[in-house]
Simulated scan of single mutants.
Amino acid sequence: MAWLVLLVSGVLETVWAVALQASKGFSRPLPSVVFGVTVLLSMAGLSYALRTVPLGTGYAVWVAVGTLGTAVYGMLALGDPVSLPRLLFLSMIIGGVVGLKTVH
């Protein structure tokens, strides 16, 4: 259960990162509220998961899921550049997360 919560919390990290950018420095109310709610939920989920998942592994997975989600969102929705090196390095992050889960 902790791993599922950790993954959902990582996805929420993506949501709050996107909402933070969309808030334009907290000048737009709706994205600012979405940011606040999702950052709290994301941190609460991380905190819950860290009861059973080791700190280094849990934090690395949480950050990796958020990083991957944010990068993919940027490429698909915001026109961020897509290149072979970029995709290679993102796949290396995935490999690291799978490796951490395997040795846990």
Rank of each mutant, 00 (worst) to 15 (best):
L55Y: 09
V97Y: 04
V82M: 12
V15W: 00
T67M: 14
S91P: 13
I93Q: 13
G96C: 06
G74M: 07
A60K: 06
V61T: 08
V65Y: 05
L30I: 14
K101T: 10
V18T: 11
F89N: 09
W16G: 03
V61F: 08
T14I: 05
L46E: 05
T52Q: 12
E13F: 02
L84Q: 08
K24N: 14
L87C: 12
G99A: 05
V8I: 15
P81G: 04
L41D: 08
L55Q: 02
T52G: 08
S83I: 11
L4Q: 06
L90I: 12
P29N: 00
L12M: 15
G96F: 09
V72H: 07
V34D: 07
S23W: 01
I93S: 07
M43W: 05
T38C: 14
A71G: 08
L50C: 12
S47A: 10
L4M: 11
L6V: 01
M1R: 06
L78P: 02
L4A: 15
P85Q: 03
K24H: 15
M92I: 14
P81A: 13
A17P: 08
W3I: 13
A19G: 00
S9K: 10
T14E: 04
L78N: 10
I94W: 03
T67D: 05
L20T: 08
V61N: 01
T57R: 05
G66R: 11
V34R: 01
V63Q: 04
G25V: 08
T70L: 07
G74S: 08
G58K: 06
R51Q: 15
A22C: 12
V98I: 15
A49Q: 02
L4W: 07
P81F: 00
